[in-house]
Structures are given as C-alpha cells and as structure tokens.
Design a protein around this nucleic acid. Structure first.
Lengths: 209, 209
DNA sequence: AGTATAATGTTGCAATTGCAACATTTTTAC
DNA sequence: GTAAAAATGTTGCAATTGCAACATTATACT
C-alpha cells in the first residue's frame, strides 16, 4: 500500500480518491508521463512498475533525479515538476494514480475526518524525500569515485538490510546518478573487486567488508 | 515574517504558538543549538541571525547541509535531525523559536481553523526544501570545478535577481559546500577572473556574462 | 530470426584535481 | 592590544579522472 494511505481504511481511501478526482493511467515502457498526462499540479503514486524522474539541462545532459518504484509517491510539490526540463519516464510498463494537487489544498476538504491523516502522510512522505536527497548529497560530496561507490553501496545495503545488493540502475545510469564517467566507474569497480572489497557478477554486488 | 505563518493573522499566530508550546531562545555565536535545546522532535524558525546545519561523518569531515537565515524554517521533519551527526550551529547571535512537532501532529489540533493553513505552509516549506536540495544536487553533479562554480553562481544570481553576488559562505565553507578542494577552487576562481567571466573582490562577485 | 541500437567492457593519454606545504592576512579571544 | 587561531592566497606535483575510441555482448524491434 502506498504510504499516502497509511492509517486510512479502504472505504475512506475510495472517498479520498473520488474527492481528489483520481485518474488511473497505465503506460507502456519508455513513455514520457508528464507529456502524456498534460497536467502540471499533481500528486501521483505508482501502483506497479518502475519509472525515473529525469532532468535534461541546457546542454542536453540527462540526469536521473529519482527512481520511482511500486507505491512510491511523486508530484509537483515533491520534485519541482513545474519546470519543463523535468520528465518522468516509465522504464517498464507502469500503472499510476494521479491526484489533483489543487484539490488537496482546497479549503473545503479539510473537514473530512480522514483528510488530516492524508495530509500528515503527505508531509511525512515529503520529509522523507528530503532525507533521500541528503543521502544523495552525501554521496556526491565524496571526492573520489571509490568513495562515491562505497557510500552508495553502504546506503543501499542499509536500506536493503543485506550485503547482497541488486542494482536497480544499469551501470550507465549509475555512473550518471553518481555524476562520474562510466568507464572510470567501471575501472574503479574492477579495482574494488581485485582488492577484495566486493564480489560482483552483472548487477549483483556483494560487500565483503 | 516566516513562511510558516503565511496567511495566518497575528492573533491566530499567537494562539498557534501557545498551542504548540513555542519556546524562544537566543544563542550567542558558535552555539550548538541541538545540543543546547536537547529536544529531538521539533520545528523551528529563525527570528534573526544566521545558522548552519552541518553534518560530521565517521571520518570527522564536516559538511554544510543547509544555511538558515532570518525567517527560515528547520526541524526534525525537514532535515533528519534525529541523526546524531547532525548539528545546527549559530554563526552569529541568533534568536529562534522552537515548536513541538508531536503537537503539530496531534489529532486534537486539527479542528482549529487556522491550523489547516499552518499545515499547508509546512508542506509548502518542506516541498521548497526539496527544490533546494535538487539545486544542490544539480551543482554537485557538474564534473569540473569551473562548472560547479558557474552553476552555483547562476542559481544564486537567479535567486538574488542580480549579477552582483555577495557570498554568505566563506571560501573555505564554499569549497566545502561544493565538495571541492579549497585551493583548487581558488585557482579556478582566479582563472575565471583572468578569462573575464567574473569580477571579484573579497566576497563580492560580479558575473560578466 | 536478424538487424539495429544500446549497454558493457577495456585501455591510453591528457587534463583536472586533490594534497601538502607554505606565506600572508584577517579574525577571534582574553 | 596582542597572541593565537582561522581564513585566504599561492604553487608544484602526483594521483585521479574524464574523454575518446574501440571491441564485445546484450537487448529491443519488426
């Protein structure tokens, strides 16, 4: 269940979805979601699938801002999607639910009993996004490729609760996410392997320290 | 006025402060605020002064996470301050107001008419923090020192609405914020100056492009 | 199934950067 | 007011990294 509905029973969830004019979409792989839905002040969550929030700068460089997996929440207020360079791309077929953010803010809704809980959830989710951003900043602040990789692995390992990591990003994407050159990253990954810090096979990485 | 009280009249502000058990503190320069107030689930804002949220990692490296100027909001939900490595340090004498975050979330308050507005403000502020984090990520993702500096200047200039920038960070702090070596940064700053991209005198920098 | 396209490996080399080690200036603290 | 501490300048050099340019899989598409 999406954290957006934490502590809200099924009946009230339905009411909420109705009140907030929820729309459900299913998109095939590699669809530009924002372009497709054309609305610009929304909150959404992923029912199933996998998407990435990306940004393309004036030089045409694309960066992955965020990954979106099942149940995760995205939207205007969460990621500055009002800015045109941002896009959400499905990396596999994905089903999403979109809510009208203006309705969330509308005064008349605040009397609904479950609405306060919904609002709290939204605040909680938004706060957690900040933590994630701080983590990424932590990674990007490391000076060497090695330290960036190790910090990325450390955080991922902490989240998964295991030293057996399965990367959701491709190497090309990971290099992009860590803001380093792909081939240089690969070189360092090999070094880490040779020096016995990690074992790796394709996208499965085991931390040996 | 702090954005926390946007659209809330003076009378209701007072009620709110009372209900949420506001406490006011004034700290001299270089005080560790979190250590001083000892509470760990709080929202606060700066009445006057200047503070920095910092993080120290296991190697003892200190990083500036965020700057806090007059009216700006900080707190548990905004910056993961529950983590012990984080600290807020006054860089000049600062007066702050602290609110109990548990009270903000308490169910009984949601009937108060101005409370919904308060909550909206909090969500708005939290969302804006994400934008700021994204900006910093944008900067840190640049590959060269030059590009990091220029991106930092670009964003700052956009915020201030002028090409005459006055740095609030010292060079040592700025290097830290950009996650680059201070002397290397200085070298690049000199290059930018020589090549006519900027003029600079102490902490005043003028963009010439 | 077969081809186009994208991702993964690999390497040499030049450019950028971090680091160490200073001198000098500014700020802080008593 | 003065000593100590911190910040600002400056430079040479070694280490790291980005980049270009490939070969080799793997994946996607019709």
């Amino acid at each position: 269940m999406t954290p957006l509905f934490f502590n809200i029973n099924a009946k009230n969830q339905e009411k909420l979805l109705y009140t907030l004019e929820a729309h459900t979409f299913t998109f095939p792989k590699n669809t530009r979601v924002l372009t497709a839905i054309k609305e610009d002040n929304i909150i959404g969550y992923v029912v199933y699938g996998y998407m990435q929030i990306t940004r393309t700068d004036y030089n045409g460089n694309m960066t992955i801002i965020e990954e979106l997996k099942e149940d995760e929440v995205f939207g205007t207020s969460l990621s500055s999607l009002n800015n045109l360079e941002y896009e959400i791309v499905t990396k596999e077929e994905s089903k999403i639910v979109i809510l009208d953010y203006n309705r969330i803010l509308a005064e008349e809704n605040n009397k609904l009993p479950y609405f306060y809980q919904f609002f709290k959830n939204l605040l909680e989710i938004t706060s957690n996004k900040i933590l994630e951003k701080n983590e990424r900043i932590e990674i990007l602040s490391k000076k060497t490729i090695r330290d960036k990789l190790l910090e990325y692995f450390r955080i991922l390992s902490e989240k998964l609760g295991t030293k057996n990591l399965h990367l959701s990003l491709s190497f090309t994407e990971l290099a992009d996410y860590l803001a380093i050159d792909r081939s240089a990253m690969y070189r360092e990954l090999k070094n880490l392997k040779e020096e016995g810090f990690i074992k790796s096979e394709k996208k499965k990485i085991t931390l040996l320290y």
